[in-house]
Structure formats: C-alpha cells, structure tokens
Measured scan of single mutants.
Amino acid sequence: MSIQHFRVALIPFFAAFCLPVFAHPETLVKVKDAEDQLGARVGYIELDLNSGKILESFRPEERFPMMSTFKVLLCGAVLSRVDAGQEQLGRRIHYSQNDLVEYSPVTEKHLTDGMTVRELCSAAITMSDNTAANLLLTTIGGPKELTAFLHNMGDHVTRLDRWEPELNEAIPNDERDTTMPAAMATTLRKLLTGELLTLASRQQLIDWMEADKVAGPLLRSALPAGWFIADKSGAGERGSRGIIAALGPDGKPSRIVVIYTTGSQATMDERNRQIAEIGASLIKHW
C-alpha cells in the first residue's frame, strides 16, 4: 500500500482519535458579512469528516447552483462504474471539434489522439474542462443518470439537468442544476469515506481534487503551510461562485467545507476574496 493510499485508508482512524471539535460562531459572522459585502445569498456548511456531524452552517438547506462543483460527483459516478466493471479508466475516447464547448483548455489539445477516461476526469476536476465533463456525462448516460446515481446514494436534493455550459445559467428560483450545502457536503463525505467506492477509487477521487489547479484564489489562499486540501470550485452566471473541499491540518483532511453564493453584482475577484476570507476565519478558529 502506498503512503497516499495509507493516508486515505486511515482518515477515519486518525479522526477518531482527534480531540473533540467545537464550532466557532466567528466564522458564521464572516459568512454573514460576506453576504453584506456581496449583496447576495451565501450558503455555508462545515462537517466533521469522521462523524458527519454538522459543526457550523448557514442557509444549509437553500438551493444554490452547483456550477462546476458537480464534476466531482460526476467522476465519482464514473469511478463507481469502474468498480462495477462497467468502465475502464484506460479506455480512450475520441471526439471532434464539434464536441468542444466553451472553456476546454485540455480537451482542445487532444482532438487528434483523444483522451482516456482517467485523463478526462483529471481534466474535468483539476482544470474544470467543460468538454471533458460533457464527454464523461455521455459515458454514464447524461445528466439524468448522474441525478439517479445521487438518488441511489441517498441524495434526493442534488440534481443535474443540463450539460456544460448551460448548467451554469443560475436563474433565480430555478431548481435545475442545483444542490443544497448540506446535501453536497453529505454526498461528498460519502464519496470520500464511505463504502460506495473502493479504496482505490476513493484515493483516485481525492487525488484529482488535491491536484486542483484553478481554485488557488479561494480556500487555498488562506491555508497555512502543512495543511491538506482537496477541492473543486465552480463559477456561473449572475454572480455565482462555489467551492467544495476536504481539508485539515497535519497533512490530512478532517472536515468537509461547502460554500456557495449566487445573485451578486460583485466582480469575480471580490467573490473570490470573500470566500478566501471565510476560509481564513475557519482556519483561525479551527
């Protein structure tokens, strides 16, 4: 067993022997301040990774656009098919120029040779490549099948209805392509620590998230040296922004954090800054 596999296998073990965790309302004060600064709703939840206990939450059962955070769930569904012998990570998928959609920095470079399922998941999570996500959605049967996968996990809230990039439209009061912070946090925890996926697939999923290259201005910008984070960000229309993450000190994750916002007129930089400040408060009061 590799060191990384050992780390993920012992996530519940280490967490069980940690000192009790206590909620700190100071972080919620910052979440509410972010709402004021952005002029928009902000949803927040913080779960203990081992027990699933909610440590703090704000608007945990209000719907927010998922945006690209759905790509972690998508690759979880792909990995479940791999575990069941219905898919192979090494299978190569070929596609054409007509398949390319807006923001496809990886797939646009491989029109000639195609990409493997493993490479597509890596591109979808680490670079948020939209064509990679659409190609992977095709392998599982489309958005409705991802929703069905989530329902089978016990998540009857999260739903995907459309493809990239239309799913980022974020129309107010439109339930399409949305989740709730509580539902997303619980589902992410199941994917990373539950028995739904094999140990190898859980490790692969967290490795992809740990290698995320496009979430630097968010929670990662607030992390002290030595902290662990595996995350996936999302951005959408109407001032929408979000991030889902597993993080913790001492090089291992111990909490799940989900943050979503929508309806702001603020710039992307300002949305990023507010999420980073929430992260800084979380870490300060850990």
Rank of each mutant, 00 (worst) to 15 (best):
I140H: 04
P253K: 02
K30Q: 11
A148C: 06
H156I: 13
G43Q: 06
R59S: 03
K232C: 14
Q203K: 12
I93F: 01
N134H: 04
N130S: 15
L247F: 05
R255A: 07
Q97K: 04
H151P: 02
K190H: 12
L218N: 14
I275S: 10
G52H: 12
L55P: 06
H156C: 09
R202F: 06
A34R: 05
T261L: 00
S233Q: 15
M67N: 01
F149V: 08
D48K: 11
R241M: 15
G43F: 01
G76S: 06
D113F: 03
T158N: 10
W286M: 12
E46A: 07
E166I: 06
A170D: 11
R202T: 10
L49K: 01
I171Q: 01
T69P: 09
V29Q: 14
L146E: 07
E87G: 03
D83M: 12
L150R: 00
L150K: 03
V157Q: 14
E87N: 09
L136A: 07
V157A: 13
P249K: 10
D231M: 15
E169G: 03
S221Y: 15
L28Q: 05
A211Q: 07
L120S: 04
G114C: 09
P105S: 06
A84W: 03
A235G: 00
G43N: 08
T138D: 10
L79A: 03
N272L: 03
T139E: 13
K53V: 10
K213S: 06
Q86F: 13
V214E: 15
S264Q: 00
G43L: 08
A124F: 07
E119N: 01
T131D: 02
E270N: 13
E169D: 02
R118M: 06
G236I: 12
W208T: 04
A280T: 13
P224S: 10
L205T: 05
D250Y: 09
H156G: 09
K109A: 04
A215Q: 14
A183E: 09
W163F: 13
H285A: 01
E145P: 10
D48E: 07
T187Y: 00
E277S: 07
Q204A: 05
I275M: 13
Y95V: 10
S240C: 00
A230E: 11
T139L: 09
G226A: 06
S68Y: 02
S240Q: 00
L120Y: 12
A235E: 15
R81E: 02
V106P: 09
D250W: 14
I275E: 09
H94L: 11
L89A: 05
S104K: 04
N50K: 10
L188A: 14
D177Y: 00
K109L: 07
V106R: 04
M184S: 12
V214R: 15
R202G: 01
V72Q: 00
G114A: 12
D269K: 15
M180F: 13
E237S: 00
P25Q: 01
P65S: 03
L167K: 00
L55R: 09
S240I: 03
Y260L: 14
A246G: 10
D155V: 12
L74K: 01
S240R: 14
G263M: 00
E56V: 06
Y95H: 06
Q204S: 07
T27N: 09
R59Q: 09
S240T: 07
A170R: 00
E46I: 08
K30C: 13
E56S: 11
R63V: 09
V101L: 00
P60C: 09
E102F: 00
A183K: 00
I125R: 03
G263A: 00
M66Q: 03
A123L: 03
C121L: 03
T186E: 07
T147M: 06
T267C: 09
L247G: 08
G52P: 08
I54S: 06
K30D: 15
I206A: 12
